[in-house]
Lab assay of single mutants.
Amino acid sequence: ETEYTFDDKREADRAAKEAQNNGLRVHVTKDGNRWKVRID
């Protein structure tokens, strides 16, 4: 399990989409004014 934090939602969405394309499970959550992408 890996977690990334992004300031920009577009960057978070791009990272999530890339991980999904690689067959990974992805969870995107909002943390204040930042975005967390957790990859299982």
Rank of each mutant, 00 (worst) to 15 (best):
E1R: 10
E1L: 13
E1H: 13
T2I: 15
E3N: 06
E3D: 08
E3C: 14
Y4N: 06
T5V: 14
T5Q: 08
D7L: 11
D7A: 10
D7S: 10
D7P: 06
D8V: 05
D8W: 03
D8L: 05
D8I: 04
K9R: 09
R10H: 14
E11F: 05
A12D: 01
A12C: 06
A12T: 01
D13K: 08
D13I: 15
D13H: 10
D13M: 15
R14S: 08
R14A: 13
R14W: 09
R14K: 12
R14Y: 09
A15L: 13
A15N: 03
A15H: 09
A16P: 01
A16K: 05
A16S: 05
K17V: 10
K17D: 09
K17A: 12
E18K: 10
A19L: 15
A19T: 02
A19E: 02
A19G: 04
Q20R: 15
Q20Y: 11
N21R: 13
N21G: 11
N22K: 15
N22L: 12
G23T: 01
G23C: 09
G23R: 03
L24K: 09
L24P: 01
L24H: 14
L24E: 04
L24T: 03
R25I: 13
R25S: 11
R25K: 12
V26K: 00
V26I: 04
V26G: 03
V26R: 00
V26T: 07
H27E: 12
H27W: 05
H27A: 10
H27D: 07
H27Q: 12
H27N: 09
V28H: 00
T29V: 13
T29P: 00
T29F: 11
T29K: 08
T29E: 13
K30Y: 09
K30A: 09
K30S: 08
K30D: 02
K30C: 11
D31C: 14
D31A: 08
G32K: 05
G32T: 00
G32F: 00
G32N: 05
N33M: 04
N33G: 09
R34L: 06
K36T: 06
K36H: 10
V37F: 00
V37A: 00
V37G: 01
R38S: 12
R38G: 05
I39P: 02
I39A: 03
I39N: 01
I39Y: 04
